[in-house]
């Protein structure tokens, strides 16, 4: 497929191409991206019935980067995030326009295996939601669905996932104890391990630290930096300092007007730029806390 790349911007020596919306599209300098694009979103709109919840979103997500999505409540951040692994399919009476391509393939297309999409694009939610099972079984749950048993190296998969989620050392002696006995922060890292166990390519995080204390939050943030070496991460957060701390790129969304209330992408760029010198007045007002 061919994507309309309106502009590209450089960020230090890594310069992934990003589709910049509207008035920032004139930023000069088209630079060949170092990282290929993992996700390419083109003219994406999302409807709940007749209500257009998201309008004409264009965005390129470079591989192995962390992208933060910020914006006021109700602007469609979570709807947008959940579109990237078709979680919204569970909601009745929705439809979409445009394309969301993962490795160049439109995941919204006909005949796409939705279960496989959700395996490739894992998700971590606001509140840790471990299954009421053992720590081991929580992580093994996904691989088991794909028919992977002990004889196929399930133990190793569980070990690797827990290790990658920086949880192994804390749980290695109690793998068969209930996951519900873990602390909130540990439970959230277990949920990350559960997502990693099915070998995803992208991890979506919807406010993953909002229910955690500052120490547990920092652990998740540090973990994200390790995970991005292997995965592409998109995080929705209300915490702007968190977006500024963890992400490489930041997307600012808001509703287009109070009548239609359609969520649009206002500005998308390197995080350093969004938080020190945003190009759009609405972004400036939002990040400085003067609106939203």
């Amino acid at each position: 497929m061919t994507l309309k790349i309106r502009s590209s911007i450089a960020m230090e020596n890594k310069a992934p191409a990003v589709v910049l919306p509207m008035d920032t599209a004139s930023i000069p300098g088209t630079i060949q991206p170092v990282n290929e694009n993992k996700i390419e979103i083109q003219d994406f709109s999302f409807y709940y019935g007749n209500f257009k919840a998201l309008g004409n979103i264009n965005m390129l997500v470079p591989a192995n980067q962390i992208i933060a999505i910020i914006g006021p409540s109700g602007c469609g951040k979570s709807t947008f995030l959940r579109s990237i692994n078709r979680m919204n399919d569970l909601v009745p009476n929705i439809h979409t326009e445009g394309q969301v391509c993962l490795n160049g393939e439109d995941i919204l297309g006909q005949g796409v295996d939705v279960v496989d999409v959700r395996r490739r694009v894992g998700m971590v939610f606001q509140r840790p939601n471990p299954f009421p099972k053992s720590i081991y079984e929580n992580v093994a749950y996904g691989p088991r669905l794909y028919g992977i048993g002990k004889s196929h190296g399930l133990d190793e998969i569980v070990y690797n996932a827990l290790k990658q989620a920086a949880l192994w050392d804390e749980v290695k002696d109690k793998l068969h104890q209930s996951a519900m006995a873990l602390s909130g922060g540990q439970q959230q890292r277990l949920c990350i391990a559960r997502a990693l166990a099915v070998e995803p390519e992208v991890i979506l995080m919807d406010e993953p630290a909002s229910a955690l204390d500052p120490v547990a939050t920092l652990k998740i943030e540090e973990l994200m930096q390790t995970l991005k070496e292997t995965y592409t991460i998109i995080i929705v957060t209300h915490n702007m300092q968190q977006a500024a701390r963890v992400s490489d790129f930041t997307a600012f969304m808001m509703i287009d007007n109070p009548q239609t209330r359609t969520g649009v992408l206002v500005e998308y760029g390197p995080t350093a730029q969004i938080f020190t010198n945003p190009k759009n007045k609405q972004t400036e007002d939002y990040v400085t806390g003067r609106f939203g």
Partner: peptide, 9 residues
Amino acid sequence: QQPMARDVR
């Protein structure tokens, strides 16, 4: 206050 954008500048 974690100033951002113009404020931090």
